[in-house]
Amino acid sequence: MKPRHHRPSERIRIIGAASGIGAQDRACEDGPVAFHRSQAWHELEHHPLLDWGKTLFAPQGDRASITGRIAALCRNLADEVALALRASEFPVVIGGDHSVAIGTWSGVARAIAEPIGLLWIDAHLDSHTPETSYSGAIHGMPLACLLGRGDKRLLNIGLEGTQISAAHTVVLGPRSYEPEELEFLQRMQVRIIDSDEILRRGFAACLDEAIAIVASAPAGFGVTLDLDAIDPRLAPGVGSPEPDGLVVHDAVEAMRRIGGLPGLKALEIVEYNPDRDRHGTTAGLISDLIGELLPPGSDK
């Protein structure tokens, strides 16, 4: 087992991104508020290095299109993430459907002033464009947007052009996707380590490779974890559950390994659906993942 790295004692700012309008099941909109009210968060909230900053919502209004509302939320989220980084805080974004990733990683790229590496842990590839999407749901498009492809309202929010470096981006754990998005990511030369490869090689070896790729990005890297990457029997409170997937230990071990790496700029945990959670199991997992960012003994 590789040694655990510890984060410096920097303040962690939690930012809620309460959007469900990018998904078919909109209950993920309630995820950040439900987690903020959960027992799992209450057990963390008094930690001296943790602060819940703001919870952002998509603007209301019948005249505003879904894409326009998501774009507005993502611009606000990018502002909050960039503000946290400029204050030498570590942003942790709690979503909300995965369309909010457009705002999170645009904000990081803006603060750093160049594209970053990104570890995208997900059951899906999330790399459709409006032309290829089967459902039209924008939570299936954010990775493509961050790579510069998609509706123009969702592009260039942080930087002009791409927000992340394709050469330093890895999608880890996908097990449900369409050929169009696979072809797009392969054309962009994004490394995809799917569930079959994880079964064949083992999670630890695949994680080692993924970390090596994303952590070599000169400007640093981030991690976005869609909770549906995990087996829904173990983490039921997700927006788009898919059979099988990672075990909880793998997700926590990944965060333990990555959480203190010096190039890590932000963490995002998305697609929490409290309507499907059972006994707070998935909320507890979110809390455990955040806890891996905290230095040992820092709650004293």
Rank of each mutant, 00 (worst) to 15 (best):
F221R: 06
Q163D: 04
P236S: 12
L246M: 14
Y177Q: 01
I157D: 02
P274G: 06
A251C: 08
R175Q: 11
D231A: 05
Q189F: 10
H168F: 07
A204T: 12
F203T: 06
V171N: 05
I164H: 00
E178R: 08
A254H: 01
R200L: 13
N273A: 14
D194C: 01
A254T: 14
P236M: 11
R256S: 12
E160R: 13
F221E: 06
V214S: 01
A235C: 15
F184A: 11
G239I: 02
Y272P: 03
L261H: 13
I157V: 14
R201P: 02
A210V: 11
R201S: 15
L172Y: 10
V238G: 08
V171K: 00
S216C: 11
P243V: 07
E181A: 05
G259P: 03
I269Y: 03
A205L: 15
V248K: 13
M255C: 10
G220E: 09
M255I: 09
A235V: 15
A235R: 13
A166M: 09
R276M: 12
D244W: 09
P241H: 04
S165G: 11
R233D: 13
P232M: 04
V238P: 04
E197N: 04
A235M: 15
C206M: 09
P174F: 00
A166Q: 07
G260H: 01
E180R: 07
Y177W: 15
D244I: 04
A210Y: 05
D226R: 04
H168R: 15
R233Y: 14
G260R: 00
D228F: 11
L225S: 01
Q189P: 02
A254L: 15
P174D: 05
L159C: 01
E268H: 14
V214I: 10
D275W: 10
V248D: 06
Q189I: 10
G161A: 04
A204R: 11
S195T: 08
L267T: 05
V170E: 03
D275K: 13
G173F: 11
A212S: 14
A251Y: 04
L264D: 02
G173Y: 10
L261A: 05
A215G: 07
I198E: 01
T169C: 03
A166N: 10
